[in-house]
């Protein structure tokens, strides 16, 4: 978001209050990433270690199976790739272009 699109002091809630619950979802921390996890489904054993260890809940899971990375919120910390027990690994880190 550019500065011009952000709310000004006249419309912002006072005192830094956030009046909507769950608003952290709207904060796209993926912007911070310099390296990104790449998922290789052919190597994945769906142990969900990545899902457990991800500090930002950025590993998407459906029906008990890993289905991909939420790149809007993944900060690129690399913990998922580090913890991935598959050999060869189902998650590897590559530089963000």
């Amino acid at each position: 978001m550019t500065r011009a699109n952000l709310p000004g002091w006249k419309t912002m809630p006072r005192g830094g209050l956030l009046l909507e619950p769950g608003s952290a979802r709207e904060y796209q921390t993926g912007d911070w990433r310099t390296i990104r996890p790449e998922w290789h489904p052919e190597n994945c054993i769906h142990c969900l270690f990545c899902w457990v260890f991800c500090p930002d809940s950025a590993v998407s899971v459906k029906g008990g199976k890993m289905i991909g990375i939420d790149y809007d919120h993944c900060k690129g910390c690399g913990i998922c790739a580090h913890e991935c027990p598959s050999k060869p690994k189902a998650l590897t880190m590559i530089p963000e272009e």
Partner: peptide
């Protein structure tokens, strides 16, 4: 019934507006 957050992080995009609100008050 109206959950809210008090004391969240205000980075350069928002901190200045919060201080302007204080000055206006």
């Amino acid at each position: 019934k109206h959950p809210m957050t008090v004391g969240s992080l205000f980075l350069p995009n928002f901190y200045f507006e919060a201080k302007k609100q204080e000055a206006e008050a």
